[in-house]
Design a protein around this nucleic acid. Structure first.
Length: 591
RNA sequence: GGUGGCAUAGCUCAGCUGGAUAGAGCACCUGCCUUCUAAGCAGGCGGUCCUAGGUUCGAAUCCUAGUGCCAUCACCA
């Protein structure tokens, strides 16, 4: 439509003013003016001198005469508002109605894929609210990119080695009395997390003790026996000490079992897991290679660095003096590994904005090393989730636990649903499944509707809303449409044309909103932003509810109108479902 | 101190590549359930778009400087 108009406007300018126009600027007509699409006339003043109203009027007249769909026009200041005919909207809707998976593009064969990394937890503690944001974002962005027409692989790199896990292991050895998830009934990740906290408590006591014996705080922190022991344990692990490796395997397995449960509840999954214990040695040979090429340089003590001062950054270490790898080394190696493992073109890292600098450096290094895909690496950087009390800290127990939070959301959904009491005839297990759908819908929407890069302040005291711009509001609209469709026992598969009906303004608004969906998906994929999908869906639902409340659907006197409105409802519900799927949110048949 | 991000209604957030009188939700106030589910709809109240300059026919949006909050600048991850 826009394309046709653009051509017509260009042609009109040629005929009226004998001028070539490069582009025509369109926007949706604001609600308070008459019309459907607006051409910004100001932009033409570059080509033709004169009064914008006059120019707008001439172009308007030309379009009305030469473009069938343009029924009428009006000019307000420098804005040319065009009224588009019903027949355009009706035939546009008909083709949308016929399109299965409208707006969603299937990945092409033989095209290179995108890998999305998210979650990537440490194995010493349970997942918390921060991980929830990470998981929801990563999962959703992967879904969105897939819907935009690309093959996607979801992955995570599990931080299963290092001093942090040794701390949990040591505390368990010391104070655990052989506790297991089975013996305690605790989820494995919770049990291990408890020992991580236990370590910290005991460690702090030792520090206090040392300070009272006259050490400085700094000395005490470095000399506390527990820490020294944990470090010794790490060395043993690295040398392959059987007992330590066994303990490590056992405790990690506890954690994985716990994580799997949380991931399942949250509704996220992965195509491939990478483990740091397998990758932490990667990248060293690449560093050697880069050293030879002169990209890196060696300091006197043997450590290897890269100088990025010309790029406005610092010098960065890529290999320790003892030859061991740092985080950066490993990330270089892992990235290369992934491009070997899969036929990739892009790689998205879902990691908090505290690591902006790290990724900037990583991408730059890979580019300097000459990997042509380095320009297609993207750090999906998101803001922290803070509590009113400040930052969440696992060691201090000031975290909102992921499992607890999901449970609470389900409980809230249960309470509200029971108060409303609309679920007569539902079996108990159906009800429970529904509470989960609604509770998680509320949580996921709450987190995904905000721009990833902004920080979220989460107040556990104030529960997440279930009314207004929320997940349940949108789910509710879906359920209401399903109710209508259940009652629509007539045949509504026949095609309605502009011969049969004329459109209500609410129907036009609704069709206009529907038309945006494909573009929104592409935009969301390009910007890595589920928030765009959320906002679109909310607008769609608002339009629909207004339509629903204003005009009768099943109660229509006119058969053709009844059919058309049922079709509209059906398509809106499908788009709600598809859009929410991109956010990882499911929709209920009733609520 | 250097670098990066953020700043819009009392609160939580939209605002696409600059375009009309800056939009939603929550909260507060008014109406609407004998009609398709009121987790809804219609309306009201509420704004120096952090500040000051600049570019432009036109700036919440772009540029510069400043202020505030956050992050980051380790042979930690």
């Amino acid at each position: 439509m826009q394309h046709n108009l653009e051509l017509a406007v260009k042609k009109g300018f040629k005929e009226i003013y004998d001028k070539e126009i490069d582009t025509v600027e369109f926007q949706a007509t604001r609600k308070d003016f008459e019309g459907d699409i607006t051409i910004v006339v100001f932009a033409f003043l570059r080509y033709v001198k004169g009064n914008p109203v006059e120019i707008g009027t001439k172009i308007g007249e030309y379009l009305k005469l030469n473009v069938a769909e343009v029924e009428d026009f009006n000019v307000v200041k420098g804005f040319l508002n065009l009224v588009i005919s019903d027949s355009f909207f009706i035939s546009s809707f008909n083709s949308i109605l016929k399109t299965d998976k409208f707006g969603i593009i299937e990945p092409k064969e033989n095209e290179k894929a995108v890998m999305v990394e998210y979650s990537s937890p440490n194995t010493n503690k349970p997942l918390h609210l921060g991980h929830i944001r990470n998981n929801l974002l990563g999962y959703s962005v992967a879904e969105i990119i897939a819907a935009s027409g690309k093959k996607v692989y979801k992955t995570q790199i599990i931080n299963d080695r290092g001093i942090h896990i040794c701390k949990s292991m040591l505390a368990w050895q010391r104070f655990g009395n052989g506790e297991t998830p089975e013996s305690t009934g605790l989820k494995g990740d919770k049990l291990v997390g408890n020992y991580y906290v236990k370590f910290d408590q005991e460690y702090k006591q030792e520090i206090a003790q040392l300070i009272s014996e006259g050490k400085t705080e700094e000395e005490a922190k470095k000399q506390a026996p527990l820490l020294l022991e944990a470090q010794a344990m790490l060395l043993k692990w690295e040398s392959g000490d059987a007992e330590i490796v066994n303990l490590w395997k056992t405790m990690n397995q506890w954690v994985y079992t716990g994580f799997d449960e949380t991931y399942k509840e949250l509704g996220v999954d992965f195509d491939k897991n990478y483990y740091e214990s397998n990758t932490y040695l990667l990248g060293k040979d690449v560093v050697a290679d880069g050293l030879e090429k002169g990209i890196f340089y060696k300091k006197e003590d043997g450590s290897v660095w890269i100088d990025l001062t010309e790029e406005g950054l610092d010098e960065k270490i890529v290999l320790r003096s003892d030859g061991t790898a740092v985080y950066m080394t490993q990330d270089i190696g892992t990235a290369i590994e992934r491009f070997k493992d899969y036929d990739l073109n892009e790689l998205v890292y879902t990691v908090g904005n505290e690591q902006d600098y790290h990724f900037k450096v990583l991408f730059l290094i890979l580019e300097k090393l000459g990997f042509d895909w380095a320009k297609n690496l993207y750090h999906l950087s998101y803001g922290m989730v803070d509590l009113p009390s400040g930052k969440m800290k696992s060691r201090e127990g000031t975290v909102v636990d992921a499992d607890d939070l999901m449970l609470e959301m389900t409980n809230t959904a249960r309470t509200i649903s029971q108060e409303l009491g609309k679920l007569d005839g539902y079996a108990d297990d159906e009800k429970e499944a529904l509470y989960k759908t609604i509770g998680l819908g509320a949580l996921k929407y709450y987190i995904l509707k905000v721009d990833p890069k902004k920080r979220i302040l989460f107040d556990p005291e104030e529960s997440v809303d279930f009314a207004g711009n929320t997940g349940p509001f949108i789910q509710y609209t879906y359920a209401r449409i399903q109710s209508i469709l259940r009652k629509a026992t007539f045949d509504y598969t026949v095609e309605i044309t502009s011969e049969d009906i004329s459109l209500h303004s609410k129907e036009i608004s609704l069709i206009k909103q529907i038309q945006l969906f494909p573009e929104v998906i592409q935009n969301a994929a390009k910007n890595h932003s589920p928030a765009l999908i959320a906002n679109f869906t909310y607008d769609l639902v608002k339009e629909y509810n207004s339509f629903y409340q204003t005009v009768p659907i099943l109660g229509c006197e006119n058969e053709n109108e009844k059919i058309f409105r049922t079709q509209l409802s059906l398509k809106v519900s499908i788009i709600i479902k598809d859009a929410f799927k991109l956010l990882g949110i499911s929709v209920p048949e009733r609520m």
